[in-house]
Design a binder for these strands. Sequence first.
DNA 1: ATTGCCGGGCT
DNA 2: AGCCCGGCAAT
Length: 238
Amino acid sequence: KEVMAATVLTSLSTSPLILNSAVYFVHPEPASKTWKEVLSTSYSSSTSGNWSWDASDQSVPSTPSPPLSKDSTHFMFEDPIPRKRKKNFKNTGTVGVCYGGGQINIHFLHTYSDYSDGEEDFYYSEIEVNMDSLTEGLSSLTPTSPTTAGPPPIFPPPLSDVSRSEYVGVNGSQSHTSSLLSQSLDDVFVHVLTLSHLLFPRKPRGEAKKCRKVYGMEKRDMWCTACRWKKACQRFTD
DNA sequence: ATTGCCGGGCT
DNA sequence: AGCCCGGCAAT
């Protein structure tokens, strides 16, 4: 089983579908850790850009998640990739996949950081889905039926000032998930990817109206100093 | 093509 | 410190 997951990861990393997404494998964390901690460690270890594989056992983190069996493992892939930009992981969606004991649980984490008060505050909201609701939600909006253009039926990305967790759907039918496990983990990951794009759409960057756009090149002397020095605008912060 | 701005240079 | 710009990510 671990071998299969490894091959899935490999094929994922070469798949054109996710060329712009980073695929991270996170070592199974001790049960004491929360998803928040797992996330931060994955960030700090993601700078190298390569991912590692460890098939050791261990249980699964997360306080608000349902019990998962031992020897489960979870991957996380991030969307979008932080690219070259150093700091802000603003509004990145992270997807964690836990599987083990014939069960697949997927955590969608909407994470964002807040630098407004000096120190970085790390917020996240967690959403959890099982395979049944995942495939259901996807099938209802895949372009197979041209009439449906409905919004994601599962959930909107919550954005609150307090970290909170939302819990959508629980442990699915054991037989179904196990057949999925033994058959095509690839489909699972493709679904997860698609859903992650739906949940965490690309932020259109342009809608900010900085000094340059507001005053124009002619009235450069009206810009804020930061804009004149080509630094991050301080008058119009997003 | 344009825009926001990081990194680094110069005074 | 203040000031400026090359270059690049993102669009």
